[in-house]
Design a protein around this nucleic acid. Sequence first.
DNA 1: CAGTGGTCTAGACCACGTA
DNA 2: ACGTGGTCTAGACCACTGT
Lengths: 243, 243
Amino acid sequence: MDVSAETSLGFRPLYLQVREEITRQLASGRWQPGTMLPSEQELARELGVSQGTVRKALDAMTAERILVRRQGRGTFVAEYEESRILFQFFRLYPDSGERLFPISKVLNLSSATPNPREREALGLDDKATVWRISRLRYHGSELMLRETLSLPGQIFQGLSETEEIPNNVYRLYSQRWGITVTRISEKLKAVSADEVDRAALNCAVGAPLLEIRRIAFDLHKRPVEYRESRCQTETMHYASDLS
Amino acid sequence: MDVSAETSLGFRPLYLQVREEITRQLASGRWQPGTMLPSEQELARELGVSQGTVRKALDAMTAERILVRRQGRGTFVAEYEESRILFQFFRLYPDSGERLFPISKVLNLSSATPNPREREALGLDDKATVWRISRLRYHGSELMLRETLSLPGQIFQGLSETEEIPNNVYRLYSQRWGITVTRISEKLKAVSADEVDRAALNCAVGAPLLEIRRIAFDLHKRPVEYRESRCQTETMHYASDLS
DNA sequence: CAGTGGTCTAGACCACGTA
DNA sequence: ACGTGGTCTAGACCACTGT
């Protein structure tokens, strides 16, 4: 690691440089999700720093959930297993009873010119295109929500050829386009069901729904997905932990 | 620090023991919010461990926002300044425009037997009592929400004598009863405004409202506050960041 | 300048998982 | 038995803050 020219101005801790270097190699595909990284000692040798510095970088990436460390086994690239998505990125819980992974039913997939909300959320101009995926999601047999996913056509090239949109789209993003979702920002409002909601969710017009507008960011902090969900919350709730 | 008898079974890292010891001394009032802790070197001497171990304990407590570290100055006990509450524990934002600290107007303070929700949230039995505080909250001049706070009478003794409930109740809990809120759990639903909402919030009956049920926990992970809020979200939203 | 936290190193030993 | 991450130590030096 180049640690020179670091006097007072523009000082950057070594372990942050190491973290960036490892993130770069990760994004470039050196290690696939689920595989093991070299040991701390080996990385330290490769990068020309001490093991403690590598450790601090790996600890930071573990805190960001980009890596998973298992004592006695090694350090692994995080995967998008169902359980991880369920606990980390999906905040709807049944009021009582067991938590189930939401089953999805895709209604529609199309390409379009982005609307203003999509443009703002995804940082696109009006010459760009987006894929739009509409789907319903169920908790067991119970219809929970309807939502539309918007994806930049520029990034998700060849999407329409995909035989089927799976339940777990983040794993698809990772496997097919090498995109790792690391952070999600959501804005929630209570809204009244309109005619479209009534038809899709089989609720009364005017019934209260929880609207969620989500932006998902990748390793480079680039917005890669915009999502609008409308949820019935009679038997479900959205859980938020602040600490 | 007693580090003996730590072979394989019941192994507890030293830095966790140090963290607990410091938390204990903190809860016992050795250092007040806003004051400086002894330096790492000094704590290390006191506790008979190395500076690195103290550092790891302090880093953990800083991550939990119990402490604040300022390079070149020292390590301080976190305070409940307006800005901290605003950013850490209050998730409602205006859709556009500047964020303001919510102004509160207390409607009512009473003592009561806990209802089932309060009993469950606060872990009380039906022989306990709770204080109930009803209030309205404004963002600037705009009425944002109405809420009821429920506090265990056992913990918050002498509350009714308080001349006034301030805007920032967490600072009051800290200053008057030495209670430090460290974690908050919230459950959100979309609900329809009822007659009480209409009267309090000046909205239509049936209008969609965001209902928030909050439980606040102290340093010992004990529930100390239960709160039910009903919010208008026409010009506001609830922000949630997942990472 | 002195004192604080922040970074970095090097090495020892421990706990864990697998073979 | 071996290799991995996890803990702990000791010491050096750097960056930041206030005097």
